[in-house]
Design a protein around this nucleic acid. Structure first.
Lengths: 210, 210
DNA sequence: TAGATTGTTAATCGATTAACAATC
DNA sequence: TAGATTGTTAATCGATTAACAATC
């Protein structure tokens, strides 16, 4: 249906969606590209361009209906269905994600955590924490397609291959190593150290650095 | 000295730097733009272009010396000095970051955590967790310029203003709201829900969606 | 209708890539 | 020297922005 959208475009759609949700709680009925642009920190032309890419149309003169627009964006972003994730590696970051309260209200469910350390196992916790050798079984029996990787760098590549062979199609990787996505699989990397280095660079550039 | 580098460019520099560190442990002496390109998932031309932006030169025919290059990248990325951060909001994410082991070995020190909940206070823990009203004092007395924000969305804007007025110049924001950077201050946002939505979109686009 | 906003096309801008002379 | 790789310029590519006719 639509042409190819890149990562930046989809991130903007998420921002528009979040802005709309706020407008919805304020009982707004209509919104203009101008308003969404302000909320998302982009230009109005960009908003309309993004919408046109997905065939989203408004009303010349009357803008967009908040509820209709929210529904269309939700559908594009998969918010109209529940998504099940697993978390692999229950260390600092993994544990935080297992219990992150923001996921529940946004259609994201953490089915289970996995670790190699028996001290971390807990079959009865809210998302259970299970041994790694049960990973393939859980993925297959519950048909899970999405995983969050929060293992140490030296284990990341091996664990990646394990989850991919078990049927995972998308991975959000927190391990501090840049994993490459094989064909038919999507990998997004979040590297905390890199993010901080980035911040440090631009703070230096803005202040001392110039 | 150098022209303006954008976020993508600096992220690539971090990747080159990480690749170099791995080469260093393997006792490599020289490296070619080609090798770094493979490691970072970019083209060799991109590597040389990035270097040229920062006046980094190699040896026509002999590539780059691993140790020299690593040193130059480290300097650009501020790895030649220790950086002190504070963490505001000691919930799931905040607590994970307070104790994230990866920071220590990369020149990043978490000076303290802050929260409003007295149950979280702990003056004696490794990074201490202090009440919010001590925030301005700590920032000023230790001349801290960098903060990680991990508070709920409704508190984020207010806390941002608090830390900025206390002297913070750079913020890594995990609160699920897009904070805008006033002039002279850098804000990088990491929105976990947005990241997962992004992943979901591209997994759908790669499989069902087409 | 008159006025305001969309949807889309064309222009601009910036970043990536290709190419190749310089040179180690 | 001959061969290989850099450093840089020019070409390409893609994304953002501007502009404006369509139209509610």
């Amino acid at each position: 249906m639509q042409a190819m959208a890149n990562r930046s475009c989809i991130i903007r759609l998420s921002r528009y969606k979040n802005a709309l949700n706020r407008l919805r709680t304020l009982n707004f009925v209509r919104v203009f590209s101008d308003n969404l642009a302000d909320a998302a920190g982009v230009t109005a032309a960009q908003v309309r361009k993004d919408f046109s890419l997905f065939g989203i149309t408004g009303n010349r003169r009357g803008g967009y209906r908040v509820d209709e627009l929210a529904e269309q964006l939700n559908k594009i972003l998969g918010k109209d269905q529940l998504h099940e994730f697993i978390v692999i590696g229950v260390g600092n970051i993994g544990r935080a994600l297992l219990h992150y309260p923001g996921f529940e209200r946004s259609g994201i469910n953490i089915a289970a955590g996995f670790d190699i350390d028996p001290a971390k196992f807990n079959r009865d916790s809210k998302p259970p924490v299970l041994p790694l050798d049960q990973l393939a079984g859980v993925i297959k029996s519950r048909d899970i397609k999405l995983a969050i990787l929060a293992v140490p760098d030296y284990a990341a590549q091996q664990v990646l291959e394990l989850v991919l062979s078990a049927g995972i199609r998308g991975v959000l990787n927190f391990a501090p190593i840049c994993l490459k996505a094989p064909a038919g699989c999507v990998i997004n990397n979040i590297n905390l150290e890199t993010e901080l280095e980035n911040l440090i660079y631009f703070v230096n550039a803005a202040n001392g650095g110039n």
